[in-house]
Design a protein around this nucleic acid. Sequence first.
DNA 1: CGTTATTATCGTACCACAATAGGCA
DNA 2: GATGCCTATTGTGGTACGATAATAA
Length: 404
Amino acid sequence: MGPLCDFCGEQRSMVYCRSDSACLCLSCDRNVHSANALSKRHLRTLLCDRCNSQPAIVRCIEENASLCQNCNWNGHNAPTAAPTSAHKRQTINCYSGCPSAAELSRIWSFVLDFPPIDDSSCEQGLGLMSIDEDNASNCWDPPEKSNKVNLQGLSRLSELENVDKVNILIGSSSISDRMADPKLCSSGIKGLDIRDGDDIYEGFGVDDDLNFDNYEELFGATQDYSEQLLDDAGIDGLYTMKNMSSAADGDCQGDSIAEAKAKQGACSSAMSADSLKSNQGATSEPSLCFPGRQARRSLSLSLSGLTAESSAGDFQEFEMSSMPVTGEPPPWCPTGPESSMFTPTDRNSAVMRYKEKKKMRKFDKKIRYASRKARADVRRRVKGRFVKAGEAYDYDPLSETRSF
DNA sequence: CGTTATTATCGTACCACAATAGGCA
DNA sequence: GATGCCTATTGTGGTACGATAATAA
């Protein structure tokens, strides 16, 4: 039957909501995400058929399975997966709003058995590709729209081999206009609400055939900020990051504040390479054109965002993968028979895998109890604070508009 | 170049209450 | 050991506000 829905615990979960970090059945997905305007904006996608815990990003045609980044890598890109590396794969689209079963069937045509969903609870239909600053990665438009992809997904494109050519989809104004406008620029692509069905391909100033070969022309930047920032910081920064992790773990708690700041400054660039949008909490905004201070601000990632979960495992992997980049092991790396066990091929694959994982890594807030989140989402507030039921309030989460 | 003022950003306290954990009979 | 009841604790999100950093004058 597969994994059960995190919400009802009865039905088989089919979709994954990144915002809620929850696996949901279609019925609960609809109920939960029709609760208010905010939850309607949550981007969801299919659940990985292999690990049943991560959002799927590609559909392997040969295997008839939806796969997350890791499973896709393990199944197709890993050195041991040579026979399957040529498998034809199709990107999987995200959706927001409250799509009907028919609409889901349309965007995920490869999934044949969508159960009927009760449409009564939600009037808003499918809202494809509404750009969400927290969950915009992995989001593609339907195949019939030439695999349009939002900008925040750009850095991940290079990871997807055998995926159809992907085009850039920008909002209702041309890119040059947006880049020229500091206000629009500073706010990145926030506010570009692109809906399926909108006549968004006309008047963009962006040709349908625009592909990633033209990316640098358009933005004056490389496609992969991770790579760039990694290069800018240099591997020294990475080493410092490793050291910082140790300090953060309490081994160097006697460090002065100045030292800590210096370390943080050194490591922030590397750390933030894949977390440009996630380090600023609710006010974070994707910055496509980092103007001066904004760029540096984006680089400063609070170490508090490094959870034990993300740091321990990742750094282990990083420790191994950093060696081939530098050519010599870092001072903290054990120098013995173990450290010379890796062949260049192994090392390169480890580096690749680390980079893939690093790109995927998110520092989002982890929701431990989806039910509590659902309750908090509909709880009434006064100036952000919860108020007793029955008291006057200034914000009704169930209302489309706020009254201040 | 140093100082001051302004602006931007970050981190966190606050709130109510359902969910959860733990203890006890 | 299983069950039910009671109490204490936890976790959830939007906003305000102080602290800090960056920039401008």
